[in-house]
């Protein structure tokens, strides 16, 4: 028996919403990769060369995966990538918090409130949504 329509509709809307967040966040970073590199460097986790590679590549990975999720293309792959990215983001934020770094998240360029507590909560919510979608997708028949 097929899945009920309201749940299917909810999962689709959730996928579009989460994909849109990635799409917007990626676009804001891709607009100014130099600024994003500076934000990544503030986490003090990578060498400068790695920071530059991340600053150039990660925004486009967010854009491509977010767009795929919004338009329902390569859903499993895009959900898996977004989940992986979210785990990395949360790990970086927790690490910054534990080290007492007074930095901006850099999640949406330089917009949003200063600090990392609110971004951490937001990312945890997004991760929960992605895990729900991933669980659903991997259980669904191909």
């Amino acid at each position: 028996m097929g899945e009920n329509a309201p749940m299917k509709c909810f999962a689709r809307i959730l996928g579009i919403a989460v994909g849109a967040v990635f799409l917007i966040a990626g676009a804001m970073k891709a607009w100014n990769p130099a600024q994003f590199a500076s934000d990544v460097q503030n986490y003090r986790l990578l060498t400068w060369t790695s920071v530059v590679m991340v600053a150039l590549y990660l925004p486009w990975l967010e854009i491509v995966s977010g767009a795929a999720l919004v338009f329902g293309i390569a859903r499993r792959g895009s959900i898996a990538i977004c989940t992986g990215l979210m785990l990395v983001f949360i790990g970086a934020l927790i690490s910054a918090k534990l080290r007492g770094l007074d930095i901006d998240c850099g999640c949406f360029g330089h917009t949003g409130p200063h600090g990392i507590t609110w971004p951490l909560l937001r990312d945890a919510l997004l991760l929960a949504a992605l895990l729900f979608l991933l669980f659903r997708e991997t259980r669904a028949p191909r």
Binding site: A30, P33, Y57, W60, S65, G77, S78
Partner: peptide, 19 residues
Amino acid sequence: MRRQIVALLLLALAPALLA
């Protein structure tokens, strides 16, 4: 799923290189 992941990773590489 693996193929989709690889395709998306490669797709993001092109604009990143241009940037």
